[in-house]
Design a protein around this nucleic acid. Structure first.
Ligand SMILES: NC(=O)c1ccc[n+]([C@@H]2O[C@H](COP(=O)([O-])OP(=O)(O)OC[C@H]3O[C@@H](n4cnc5c(N)ncnc54)[C@H](O)[C@@H]3O)[C@@H](O)[C@H]2O)c1
Ligand SMILES: NC(=O)c1ccc[n+]([C@@H]2O[C@H](COP(=O)([O-])OP(=O)(O)OC[C@H]3O[C@@H](n4cnc5c(N)ncnc54)[C@H](O)[C@@H]3O)[C@@H](O)[C@H]2O)c1
Lengths: 223, 223
DNA sequence: AATATTTTGTGAAATGTTACACAATAAAAT
DNA sequence: ATTTTATTGTGTAACATTTCACAAAATATT
């Protein structure tokens, strides 16, 4: 289906761009547009037009030499690849400030995402009857297996993150977005005996380093 | 000071790694360690030992051939470069769910960061007497100039993001971390007449695309 | 119908990043 | 003292990604 781009890591950046194209194209479409040029799109997601064309070539999306790309065609192909049609169910472990913000985030829907449950160890946080229920951590495994959840967010304090990750993987989670300020990664340590567990992909979302980076760059630009 | 690494963009990834080294080294130090090896550090922040050594070479941090690197020396040099000593003051514009989580985030302190004020247009959010005060948006410019703030977070709805960015830049903000699901970027449009405004560096933190990416990778791994 | 213009599509070059491989050497062991 | 071992430091290679440059083709203009 996809050739060279799809290497070991699955080419994170490429997929990231696809989901950005998608969002922008939906907006363009809502504005009544039917076609786009690589430079419009490039401007919108901040890459060069060549990158856009290369990406589309990768996806076998044909453009016409002076009419650009048909938005619907691109969206169709992108959705196909991202399987954006079915809602992508995810859970949130650690329903504190940032966990709750994510759990309740209205914007997920537009991106085909759906937070279906939260988990916490603090009894005060538990609320199984809320629109998006919050369960005690003990029920994680059952819930994940029963509902066939594959992706989850970690928003617990740093010191619990690694332990929570183990639990999640054991429960069957295969993709994790981590907000705790530790570099989580998948290791096989805990599946010594019964190794039918597949790997788990972990992406770390670190906010402080991003800010520190900004301060650095700003400083540098000033000098 | 730094040579080749410091190209146009200031090498985002390199600086990102530095702030991760810092965090990990602080932890190691707290554990009583005095020295580290490139492979320990590499494991901790998930890069190869070679990358660590190359980074340290870049910073002129000497290691000893069998004793590794002295943690204090590394920290000193890293802090020097990041100017990590003085607290980095930032503001948050848009004090909704995610904005408030950030504004109140305790963890910033450990990273030398300090959220000093929030801004919002909703009168209900305003609270100038809180520990971390929230002011009406109109006061942004005065506050930023008076307190010499250079970095800010955008956590307003997507449709306001671009407008808010303009305001922030006009006020004097030079670095922005954007959580709204639009690809913000610096353009000169609004400084047509009076062009003493320096540029503004904008980093976009997009959560949905990261999750979509995870779903994609998980799916791909399963097949 | 002829010409000019715009935009795609892509090979090749440039750039940037990470990893390999190994000599140099400091520390430890014998 | 000598040998072994572990680890840094780095030139080079491998890989990945982005950009350049331009031919090809579709549309627009004259
Ligand atoms: N708040 C922010 O803006 C922000 C920014 C960057 C990073 N982070 C990181 O995100 C994480 C959460 O931050 P927060 O501000 O929401 O903290 P918080 O204290 O508000 O929330 C943490 C939640 O996790 C729960 N919890 C603790 N241990 C748990 C466990 N083992 N299993 C399940 N739940 C558990 C707690 O009961 C609490 O509800 C932290 O690691 C923090 O460093 C937060
Ligand atoms: N909540 C999440 O987990 C999450 C996740 C990803 C992205 N985001 C994005 O972050 C942004 C904020 O999300 P949220 O969930 O906190 O929304 P929210 O509605 O809770 O908060 C938005 C806040 O911005 C304020 N605001 C609106 N216009 C403003 C303006 N012009 N100037 C100043 N303040 C203004 C509102 O009064 C409100 O307090 C949105 O763009 C959202 O898409 C949120």
């Amino acid at each position: 289906m996809l050739h060279n781009k799809m290497n070991q890591a699955g080419d994170k950046k490429f997929i990231l761009r696809l989901s950005k194209y998608k969002r922008v194209l939906q907006q363009f479409k809502a504005l009544g547009m039917e076609r786009v040029f690589s430079n419009n799109l490039g401007d919108a997601i901040d890459v060069t037009p060549t990158t856009v064309r290369k990406d589309f070539a990768e996806l076998n999306i044909p453009g016409s030499k002076r009419g650009g790309y048909v938005i619907d065609e691109v969206l169709k192909r992108v959705n196909e690849l991202l399987e954006q049609d079915k809602p992508k169910k995810l859970i949130v472990v650690g329903c504190g400030k940032i966990g709750t913000a994510l759990l309740m985030y209205k914007g997920f829907e537009q991106d085909g995402l759906m937070a279906v449950a939260g988990f916490d160890i603090d009894p005060k946080k538990i609320d199984p009857n809320a629109t998006i229920p919050i369960f005690p951590l003990e029920e994680l495994k059952t819930f994940v297996k029963k509902n066939n959840i594959k992706v989850g967010i970690i928003s617990v304090p740093a010191e619990s993150a690694s332990r929570v990750l183990d639990l999640m993987i054991e429960a069957g989670i295969r993709g994790v977005l981590n907000f705790a300020p530790v570099e989580l990664k998948y290791t096989k340590r805990f599946i010594a005996k019964n190794d039918h567990t597949a790997g788990c992909i972990i992406h770390n979302m670190h906010i402080s380093p991003e800010l520190i980076n900004l301060f650095f760059l700003v400083k540098k630009q000033e000098e």
